[in-house]
């Protein structure tokens, strides 16, 4: 253990075959699988608008974005598998409700503007988090983050562009984007998790350089980045307490309603049940397909062995 922690202090990367405390391994499995599950579940609220995208260009870019997310989930699942757990078990944990995923994806996408706002806020928040995680101590996770960050920047810019077009559009479009912003702002701030003093895992994750910065630091960074972006497209943020603090050079913001957050992660958010039901039915309906492919391959390999 001492040698392990010394390696971390030297800034070394831990690779799959290296010795690691069981707790480190378990924390990483939890964190990485949650991240992967979030990417997969996140396909649902955005996928909800693919068939109704209002222009071919938007349809194409939204499809590409959601596909990227599937790919991100896949990279992170593969990274998680290096820790000694199979993807079948990970999928099972998600579908039985044993594993968590990011609270934000339990909110519904009610209008097209939600798609823009998700790119801007949710991908924006994810980038802040993932940029930090690119320096995480576990090699496969860090490498997945670097690959993901490249693609995620493109998503955020697209989302912001959708919002800026709406904000400069018809009255109905301006109302649409303001309404979406009003609904997604606070849940996006909650994505960073409660203040670290409330968060049971944080201290250990920081000691082992899995997390490199606190939830509050990341949340503040996100707010500081986003407020000027909102001003630039003339969209307001639903927080009367938002005020620039010249001393700290940060934007002060209002209190978060953590009750809502805890309700959502407990399973009582607007869409929790639908999200899991959708994933379960895809999985269940898909069983015969997965079995067919496996059976086909077995027959082929038996034939060539004969």
């Amino acid at each position: 253990m001492a040698e392990f922690e010394a390696r971390l202090d030297r800034g070394e990367t831990i690779e799959p075959k290296d010795w690691m405390p069981e707790k480190y391994r378990k924390q990483l499995i939890r964190m990485m699988s949650q991240h992967a599950h979030s990417e997969i579940v996140g396909m649902l609220p955005e996928g909800n608008w693919i068939t109704r995208a209002p222009s071919l260009r938007r349809k194409i870019t939204l499809l590409a974005k959601v596909q990227d997310e599937a790919g991100h989930g896949l990279y992170i699942y593969c990274g998680t598998e290096t820790l000694g757990i199979g993807r079948e078990e990970l999928v099972d944990q998600l579908l039985t409700g044993k594993a968590k995923y990011s609270s934000i994806f339990n909110y519904p996408t009610l209008t097209w503007a939600d798609i823009g706002v998700i790119g801007w806020f949710v991908d924006g928040a994810a980038i802040v988090n993932q940029t930090m995680l690119a320096k995480t101590s576990y090699g496969p996770y860090a490498r997945a983050m670097i690959r993901i960050c490249k693609e995620e920047n493109f998503h955020k810019r697209q989302g912001y562009e959708i919002c800026s077009v709406l904000a400069a559009g018809t009255q109905a479009q301006r109302d649409m984007v303001q309404d979406a912003v009003n609904r997604w702002w606070w849940p996006s701030l909650m994505m960073f998790g409660p203040s670290d003093k409330e968060s049971p895992n944080s201290a250990e994750l920081i000691r082992w350089r899995v997390k490199r910065e606190s939830n509050d630091t990341l949340r503040q960074r996100f707010v500081d980045l986003t407020v000027p972006q909102a001003k630039a497209i003339n969209v307001s943020l639903p927080d009367p307490d938002l005020k620039y603090n010249a001393e700290t050079e940060h934007w002060d913001f209002g209190a978060i309603d953590w009750d809502e957050f805890y309700q959502v992660i407990k399973g009582n958010g607007p869409c929790n049940r639908e999200r899991l039901a959708a994933r379960r039915s895809a999985h269940d309906d898909g069983a015969l397909v997965r079995d067919a492919a496996a059976a086909y391959a077995r027959k082929r390999s038996a034939a060539s062995a004969a």
């Binding site: 997969i40 396909m43 649902l44 996928g47 693919i50 068939t51 071919l56 349809k59 194409i60 499809l63 590409a64 959601v66 596909q67 599937a70 790919g71 989930g73 896949l74 699942y77 959708a278 039915s281 895809a282 999985h283 309906d285 898909g286 069983a287 397909v289 997965r290």
Partner: peptide
């Protein structure tokens, strides 16, 4: 594109999405 997030396995979700993208393009 209607298969998005409903495919039997992740790899296939990506593949069908790819084809949808190609065709709409």
């Amino acid at each position: 594109s209607e298969w998005c997030a409903h495919a039997p396995i992740l790899e296939e979700d990506i593949a069908l999405g790819n084809f949808a993208l190609d065709l709409v393009g």
